[in-house]
């Protein structure tokens, strides 16, 4: 059972308006059968300090990543996780979170790896919801466990691995990190912890479009005309071309993946979640430094 889509005028201009809901829409639909609201934040305790009534928490690190291997959880673990949150295969899932929906977009991307059909973001996320004085509670959400099928994760359509990137030269790459990380001055976002990359810089030919450029001051997504100016006019993306986006561990680029796929309608966008923590430590992969994208390597290095 799916819940009706938000027909706000702002969303209608996007390629897939059904992927966003507004605060007004969500407040009006809270508690409706078939709807599950999920909070996904950078801080693992933020949900506990107050959350949308009836919402459940999914943590990007402790829930969605495999605890041992550097990979996402498998189909069985995903089914167990989301069923425990009251999510069925046909649930409408609305995800919201802190920091312009940074981690909410990451969770949405992982839901998409498992082919969950109806998953949406709350435009503006947690901060805007609170700023608008909408209801927040610390009451523990009691959910009835649902049943969710074990679905095999499908990585090929929206996820890129290192070898995919090596084979991708000649097509557009988007580096969504800060200019300092892109140029090679540093390997982590300003004020973020070192996550281990041995070399600094960017993948040659990648255009630098920091992820937060897609967000307005209030954390909502910018209107389609402004997004077109950033990604089509600015970064030179053209409809029909395959695109790979990356950042440091694939979270910020999930946000850009959402914008390109669901708001601008690009049909072949993949997120390289190995991102700089893999590329910047891999042996014999090409790296460019400085503010310019740099040229594609003439030969593909040994794998």
């Amino acid at each position: 059972m799916t819940v009706e889509t938000d027909r706000s005028e702002k969303f209608a201009a996007y390629a897939h308006p059904e992927r966003l809901v507004s605060g007004d829409w969500l407040e009006a639909h809270l508690g409706e059968p078939g709807l599950v609201v999920v909070e996904s934040d950078e801080d693992v305790l933020l949900y506990e300090t107050g959350h949308i009534p009836g919402s459940v928490k999914i943590d990007w690190h402790t829930d969605l990543n495999d605890p041992v291997q550097r990979d996402y959880i498998d189909g069985a673990a995903f089914a167990e996780l989301v069923a425990g949150k009251g999510i069925s295969r046909d649930s409408t899932v609305v995800i919201y979170g802190d920091k312009n929906n940074w981690w909410a977009a990451y969770a949405l991307w992982v839901f998409t790896l498992f082919g969950h059909d109806d998953v949406r973001l709350l435009d503006g996320g947690r901060d805007k919801w609170i700023a608008e004085g909408r209801p927040i509670t610390t009451d523990r959400t009691v959910t009835d466990a649902a049943t969710y099928p074990v679905v095999e994760r499908r990585d090929d359509a929206i996820r890129a691995f290192k070898d995919d990137v090596l084979a991708h030269f000649g097509h557009p790459l988007i580096d969504v990190r800060s200019p300092e990380e892109y140029s090679g001055e540093r390997t982590t976002a300003p004020a973020y912890p070192e996550e281990g990359a041995l070399r600094a810089g960017h993948i040659p030919t990648a255009a630098n479009v920091p992820w937060a450029k897609a967000a307005a001051d209030d954390g909502t997504f910018k209107p389609v005309a402004e997004l077109d100016a950033i990604y089509r006019d600015g970064a030179g993306l053209e409809q029909g071309e395959p695109v790979i986006a990356y950042c440091r561990i694939g979270e910020r680029s999930s946000h850009t993946w959402f914008v390109l796929t669901h708001l601008l309608g690009f049909e072949n966008v993949r997120n390289y979640d190995g991102s700089w923590t893999e590329w910047g430590s891999a042996v014999r992969v090409p790296i460019a430094t400085g503010a310019e994208p740099g040229a594609a390597p003439s030969t593909t290095p040994a794998k």
């Binding site: 801080d43 693992v44 933020l46 506990e48 300090t49 802190d98």
Partner: peptide, 9 residues
């Protein structure tokens, strides 16, 4: 900040 409860903890 209050928005960073883990770090505060």
């Amino acid at each position: 900040p209050k928005e960073a409860p883990t770090t505060r903890g």
